[in-house]
Design a protein around this nucleic acid. Structure first.
Lengths: 136, 136
DNA sequence: CATTCTGTAACTTTAATTATTACAGTACAA
DNA sequence: TTGTACTGTAATAATTAAAGTTACAGAATG
């Protein structure tokens, strides 16, 4: 993860949970996060494609949670925004003539995958409802 | 973690382990990773400041492991290169007039800290010796 | 049919990362 | 005692990634 998309998505989802089904516009959400509404709409599009939210177009439109907050785990949020490996990308192209260089990306990926599994199982214990309930 | 420093550091450490105490130059290491030697020297400087490696200046100089490979855990490597929070930085400045915006960074940081602890305890079970032994 | 939304593409700006150049300082060895 | 081969580090440039902006088509409402 190399950006703040997890934070943004969780912020969006928390707002939607607090809204209790009332539709929130991307502009309103953007005002709370203090970012550009287009970024919010992009992130909503991603969350929508993962089945976590839904949106209604047109006047008085907006977005709402597609599932109950206690049915959305933080692991699902992580999956939705994840793009790179946890500890960084193996974007180097090491020297294939070197014994270590030749194999390192494979071993790094194995390590990344297993540590990521640990993280996911930890996040899967926590739901959006848990997170949202912390706000007083 | 938002760059490939973990991969680079682990690559360096693996090469040094394989070298069995023989000094490796930054140029030689850079050739295996396929990056600029100056970056290698910077990363070596960081690893050195964390007590994982040491270097000898001057002709025939180079770097070597400061501790036995089975005394270097991957958690130590993680600590050495870590700068940001695991799931991304809370670099947004949300709207303080919003109930959620006002508190979210605090709750995100709590979440980040606890998931990071999980990751670290997982990485602390694995040593450089374990990792290095995977190379055949 | 004007208004207020979403969805999305294209583009610009900003920030972060990576690479490069340069050179002083250290150690060795002829 | 001097040339050579290294490290250490600063300064800067180039590249890449992230975030922000503009623009506008299309949908739903009243």
């Amino acid at each position: 993860m190399n950006n703040s998309r997890f934070a943004i998505s969780l912020h969006i989802l928390t707002l939607l949970e607090k809204a209790k089904g009332e539709l929130l516009s991307s502009e309103w959400i953007a005002g709370s996060i203090n970012i550009n509404p287009v970024l919010v709409r992009k992130e909503l599009g991603n969350l929508r494609s993962h089945g976590l939210v839904n949106s209604k177009e047109g006047k008085n439109g907006g977005s709402y949670l597609e599932k109950a907050a206690d049915q959305i785990s933080l692991a699902q949020v992580y999956h939705a925004v994840k793009q790179d490996h946890l500890l960084g990308v193996s974007k180097n192209t090491p020297n294939p003539l070197c014994q270590v260089g030749k194999q390192i990306n494979m071993h790094l990926n194995t390590l990344y995958d297993s540590t990521e599994q640990t993280l996911i199982s930890e996040l899967s214990k926590q739901t959006l409802a848990d997170f949202s309930s912390k706000f007083i």
